[in-house]
Write a protein that binds this DNA or RNA. Structure first.
Lengths: 359, 359
DNA sequence: CGATGGTATGTAAACGGTTACAGGCCGGCC
DNA sequence: GGCCGGCCTGTAACCGTTTACATACCATCG
């Protein structure tokens, strides 16, 4: 029996490899590897001996080596447009938490709402080694899909739901959510609508929401006149400014729908500053239910998307696909319309008859 | 000359390795490697020939293999308590952006304000292979430092600034920032202070802020009575509730300092709901300057920390250390006190003489 | 009692790059 | 003309795991 080495002093742990563990334990590297990954295939005694050596030496497996041998990294990559948006932050947190629980790590990147950047980031992520990729939206650089497909990397779109490609996306049906919200406002008697949207150029979610609004209006032969439409960035200040522009027209809209939470908050604050009676003279509705929506003096009607749930489902879905299992979660995340004090009957005219009304 | 292969059809790119590129280009793997990493060491002609083969074959380097060979991953790991906090989200975005610019990737994890979780996440990150680690705060699991030190992984604390260990942290001096804010309020004549703090158990930033407040008060022989002190989570609702509890005591405080942005917003909203005259009867101040602070009907006095700058500097600092360069940025991030309408002279009593006043 | 089958372990070849070292070639200089 | 030194390129070892395959051992069974 070879002399056992002195117990490793804490300073050594730097370059301990599996090989050393094996040598010290007096077994082969294969056995150590098995003891760690498939303990049931190793005898009780050895397993314990190895375990003790492992933590005496402070060995930590070398991810790159393992990745090279297994062709798996245990990492998924996500590209978000931004992180300062409440819903993305929540989704990210949900995603991260669930991945941790499932034993995966998260490699994160931002696209800043640019399709080119998104594509470049995806390339970097793949190069760095990710087992799957999570994106936001369904609109991507034309090369992106082919690139991932060639390498057989699973992808998932989030924050959208595409009925035509089941399994390719997880999130709310943006179009339908705003369709329903708009119908509700129409039923309250509103006829003159204003819309403050996010920029739709590279944002298919924003576009889908807009389509939902337009479709609902069209069903009642209504439309958003140019003077009552504005597109902009997603800050409170922008919301104020665009709201002022729209609300001070004549005739003014009786309902203003905002494409996201901050725009809605801005609209609400500006309406108060302008002394507009909400919801008496004008109703305001938003999208995404962040806490402030419910806490303002006049709480804001909005669409609640459980963003953290989007993140968690995305995690489960991708991991299932990586591991060759069938994903079990539903892909569509319910978008609930939360009615609050900021919306009410249109001033003047009586509300329409229920749903069937043709106007 | 061996017959040249047919141009790769797009469907092949799956398993192209550097070896294949070399074979197709008719050179050795070493040359291809050099052509990619140190192009100046390869002749013009070869470089071009190789480049063309690379993109004809759609080769993407295999990160794990490279990492194994170079003992570098080009990835840094970050562990944040949460991501739904405005300042962390901004810092994360800054961090991510800067890392991308520097050619690094970001591996992200959350601790949920638990030191144990933070430690576990760090272990996972190291196992997965990160060249450096970014943390929040200076308070960590006792094993964390030794663990990273043994492996010579550079670490940086963020959102704190520790004068005693220069180079170990980047962020504002929380204690001093709130010291100054409190002094300002004292100079306005305030004597009865209320404080709504974040939970300080595992949050040394919150604790430092609290110390700053107490130190400033102590200089004037003042203190926060138990009835005017509350600790809680960081939601608007919590801010409302704690504010109500504190503001409805008798005698009530004339100034309430809140440990973060959402608590301050909650306090402000609740003060309006209670019909308290702000700043006439009571001043409110917060911490962290998110957009809503400036946009509420009564804008809130606060401490502005450039969180995205914290993230960017952290990125530059860590990359510099990884690459063996001396970091060039300053470690302390200025925390600016932003005076707004929510704070004003104390009701009744005249303000103190300037700074030297002993009370 | 030898063939058989199962279990626990070892051997060694990948995995896909990087890089120290070793030529080969060529021009310039004595 | 031979030697020297620089520039390019090739050879092959190595990075730290995993895993297919081989092997040794042991109990069981015909």
């Amino acid at each position: 029996m070879p002399a056992r080495r002195a117990p490793a002093d804490p300073a050594v742990a730097a370059g301990v490899s599996l090989r050393m563990v094996a040598r010290v334990a007096g077994v082969s590297t294969a056995t150590v590897s098995r003891a760690m990954n498939t303990p049931e295939r190793v005898s009780e005694a050895l397993r314990e001996r190895i375990a003790s050596v492992v933590d005496r030496l402070g060995w930590v497996p070398h991810g790159a080596a393992r990745a090279l041998a297994t062709r798996r990294t245990g990492t998924i990559g996500a590209v978000f447009p931004t992180l300062t948006h409440g819903d993305f932050a929540r989704a990210l947190e949900g995603l991260q938490g669930e991945l941790t629980r499932l034993g995966y790590r998260l490699l994160l990147a931002c696209s800043e709402y640019s399709l080119d950047q998104e594509y470049q980031q995806v390339r970097k992520l793949v190069e760095r080694g990710v087992d799957a990729v999570l994106l936001v939206g369904a609109l991507h650089h034309p090369e992106l899909r082919p690139f991932l497909d060639r390498r057989a990397v699973p992808v998932l779109d989030s924050f959208v739901f595409d009925r035509d490609h089941p399994g390719a996306s997880v999130g709310p049906d943006n179009r339908r959510a705003l369709f329903r919200l708009t119908e509700h406002l129409i039923a309250l008697g509103h006829r003159r609508f204003g819309v403050i949207a996010q920029e739709t150029a590279t944002n298919d979610r924003a576009r889908a929401r807009l389509e939902g609004i337009r479709a609902a209006l069209a069903q009642h032969s209504l439309a958003v006149p140019p003077a009552h439409f504005a597109e902009g960035r997603w800050t409170i200040r922008e919301g104020r400014e665009l709201f002022r522009r729209i609300a001070t027209t004549d005739p003014a809209p009786t309902a203003v729908i905002c494409g996201n939470a901050w725009l809605a908050v801005g609209a609400m604050l500006e309406s108060q500053a302008l002394g507009i009676d909400v919801p008496g003279a004008l109703s305001i509705a938003g999208y995404d239910d962040i806490e402030i929506m419910a806490e303002l003096p006049i709480p804001i009607t909005t669409v609640r998307v459980l963003s953290d749930e989007v993140g968690r489902r995305a995690a489960r879905h991708l991991v299932a696909r990586i591991e060759g299992r069938a994903p079990s979660d539903a892909f569509e995340c319910e978008a609930e319309i939360v009615l609050r004090a900021s919306s009410g009957p249109a001033p003047g005219g009586p509300p329409l008859p229920p749903r069937s009304g043709q106007s």
